[in-house]
Amino acid sequence: MAGNNGQTTRIELPGASVDVVRKGSGQALFILHGGGGPVAAMPFVDRLAESFEVIAPVHPGFAGSAIPDHFDDLQDLVFLYLDLMDALELEDAVMLGISMGGWTAMEIAVMSTARISKLILVDSVGVKVGGREDRDIADVFATPPEELARLFWHDPANAPDPAHMTDAELEMVQANRVALGLYTWQPYMHNPKLPGRLHRIDVPTLVIWGESDGLVTPNYGRALCAMIPGAEMAIIPAAGHSPQAEQPDAFVRHVTSFAS
């Protein structure tokens, strides 16, 4: 297959369209981004594109794309991607989901693993592990920005500073929040039914976690990992909720050695 150089293609699917970025060549690596927005332009993706064909859709509503009128929650995203994987005729793809993208990936995998060979979850949300009054996942819609930065990053200095953003960039961040809210509002960042379905995941699974993640802690990751048959756990030191951004070398190493 010819190498892709990061071009974006809009793919029309029944009821919705989706922007898909492709980079590199080789085995398909299907990346579902988190609530922070698309990751295809980040250095870790370029590194992975040296070994894989990265296929990275943009969730509708992110990066300036429209939210389809009929979209109500994460299930709409799940069915969109089932359609997309069919349209792309993916075979033996490695599916990598980050945060809410990890939740999406699990929802896809419990329905069908026909098109995927391996699953990688990165600081993923999607399940409830504690009691009804335990806040498993920080309420990102009710946390002061400075506190959120402290929870999200190993080094809060890595947090993007609104003062250094253009109006257009800041507007896009706000639009991304709307989409994140739509997909994750209630039940907050999880599907109560999902733990009872995770036994259906019959592909090798790696759970990667940033050791300093305060948004969704490594203990949450361990509990999630224990729900998936045979899943392995990898903790990345000196990284928070976004280990792919704070420790790209270690991150790429884990992904490559697991997926290859």
């Binding site: 819609f141 009710a142 946390t143 002061p144 920005p145 609104p162 003062a163 109006d167 800041l170 507007e171 896009m172 961040v173 706000q174 639009a175 929040r177 709307v178 994140l180 809210g181 739509l182």
Partner: peptide, 21 residues
């Protein structure tokens, strides 16, 4: 504070951006 007066989808993104700033 901003975390309560700017929930997702209340204000149009252009206004939400000004609030965030």
């Amino acid at each position: 504070p901003v975390e309560y007066n700017n929930p997702p989808g209340y204000h149009p993104p252009a206004v939400a951006a000004k609030i965030a700033r």
